[in-house]
Every structure is written in C-alpha cells, then in structure tokens.
C-alpha cells in the first residue's frame, strides 16, 4: 500500500505539523465477528507519547478497537477488519505486514495478569529471547523491572515462579515483560480491573512515569482513571442494530481529556461521564 503520510483527520489538539507525531491513524474502521458487526466506522488519531484512554459502557467495542492496533484480532478465526489502521503511515493490514513484527513493536498488557508459569526472570526475558536477542539479558531484565517499579521488590527472587507474586505485582511484571522488547506503543486492556485500589494507584503512577518513553492506549471502565491518567479520551458507545438486534460499537467523541469530562460535545458523552448511564 501507500507509504505516504495519511491526511489528517479533524484534530483540534494538534498545534504541530499535521501528522508529524501521529502514531496511529484510523480511518473508517469496521470489525466483524462472523455475521456480527461489532464496531462500525471508527476514525481517530493517536499521538506519540501521550496516554489515550478509551472509555464507554461494556460491549461498546473499545477492546475490539484496541486489539486492531497490534492485530490481536487475527488470532480469532472469525474476526474480520475493514478500513485502514496506519502505523506511522504504514497500513497495518497490508498483506506484506507480519503481525508478529507488529506485536514486537506494539506491546500489550491484558485485563487479567497473565504471567507465564516460569521464573520472574524468564518472564521478562521471554520477549527478547523469542525476538532473537543474543546479548546480555540481565541488563534488559533489570532495566525493565526498574521501569515497571518492581525491581526492589523482586531483585532477590528473580529465579522464583512469577505465579507466587501478588496480583498487582503480576500486572507490573506483565508491564515489565511488555517493555522489555522496547516497544513503541503499549496497549493496555483494562489493566487494573482485577486489582485492588492500592495496586491500581501504583500502576497509574507507573503509566504517568513511562509515558515519556512510550505511547500508551488504555481501555478502562473506570472514568476516574481515564480522567487521572490520560491526555486524550475517546468515548465509545453501543448502538442496537435495528435489523439484527445486535450491539454495535461506535466512536462518539474523541478530544482532550479535560474537554471530554468538563465540556463534552455530545449529550451521550455528557450522560456517561456524569454517571447517568453506562
């Protein structure tokens, strides 16, 4: 496909050259699961080294959209993606693009902490190893664990099973594991939904710290969390299809987080952020 930078979509928050620091440009994205039209017509642009939050009621397709950014949807046989997702101007769904190479650059942290049943060290070293890293892993492991704020807690038990850690530690380990391959983007799919408030606070602090190095997209159910950590927020909602009766996700509004929460442009957004529905 084309290698030129895509045309900018309307974006009031940009004051630099249009498209210069765009990581993702999404154009007319539709996702289908078999016959089910799960997400329709999403357009948005993700900025470099910002935290973008996707909020909305359940079933609104925000996780589905998130999984289009690193082609995780490819793993589901019946999933089909239409429209374009450009990553630094390159069409992610071009036939010549290998999803494995994409995922190496675009890391992901999942809803439930999913450490591998291996040692802490081996969990962090997994990505570099499969990626063909041949040098000193100790350095990478330490750096990643430090970045994830976990080093001091685990430095004396790197050889122990990761499954013995607390839930919050496990999720930070998953973040360390994801940044060990030095990705460009971190996708976080409700990373705190399985954690207690204290562990959630730690992860939020962590996100703010590592934002200087990574572009982060976070899906969250928790509006306060979106307001606390994100720079920009996308609000999705679900519409009921008249013919099939199925829920179909739709992007309603995408703007600075401040605007979304204090001065939403759409009444549905306002209803949601003020707690009247969802």
């Amino acid at each position: 496909m084309t290698m030129t930078q895509p045309a900018m979509t309307t974006d009031p928050a940009t004051d630099a050259v249009p498209g210069a620091n765009d990581v993702f440009t999404v154009d007319g994205l539709n996702v289908f699961y078999g016959d089910h039209h799960a997400v329709s017509e999403v357009d948005l642009t993700i900025k470099e080294r910002e935290i973008t939050a996707f909020i909305g009621p359940s079933g609104c397709g925000k996780s589905t959209v998130l999984r289009c950014f690193n082609r995780m949807n490819d793993l589901i046989d019946i999933a089909r993606v239409e429209g374009t997702v450009r990553y630094h101007g390159v069409d992610l769904y071009d036939e010549a693009v290998d999803p494995v190479a994409v995922r190496r650059r675009i890391g992901m942290v999942f809803q439930k902490p999913n450490p591998f049943p291996k040692s802490i060290y081996d969990n962090v070293a997994y990505g570099p190893r499969v990626g063909g890293h041949k040098g000193n892993l100790d350095e990478i492991v330490e750096r990643s664990l430090r970045d994830a704020g976990l080093w001091d807690e685990v430095k004396d038990r790197l050889g122990e099973s990761a499954l013995g850690m607390s839930g919050g530690q496990q999720q930070r380990l998953c973040i360390a594991r994801a940044i060990a391959v030095n990705p460009d983007v971190l996708l976080m799919d409700e990373p705190c939904s399985a954690l207690d408030p204290i562990a959630t606070g730690v992860i939020e602090e962590l996100m703010k710290e590592i934002k200087s190095e990574y572009t982060i997209i976070i899906v969250t159910h928790n509006m306060q969390q979106a307001a606390r950590v994100s720079d920009r927020t996308a609000f999705f909602t679900a519409e009921i299809d008249e013919h099939s009766g199925q829920r179909r996700g739709k992007l309603v509004e995408f703007d600075d987080t401040g605007s979304i929460f204090s001065n939403p442009g759409d009444e549905r957004t306002e209803a949601y952020v003020t707690g009247r529905f969802g």
């Binding site: 793993l75 494995v100 995922r103 890391g107 992901m108 591998f116 997994y126 990505g127």
Partner: peptide, 9 residues
C-alpha cells in the same frame, strides 16, 4: 495471548 502480545510467532 501473552506470548503473542510479545511478538512470538
């Protein structure tokens, strides 16, 4: 998913 997410084939 964890392994795929880290760029494993």
């Amino acid at each position: 998913e964890g392994a795929y997410g880290l760029g494993a084939t």
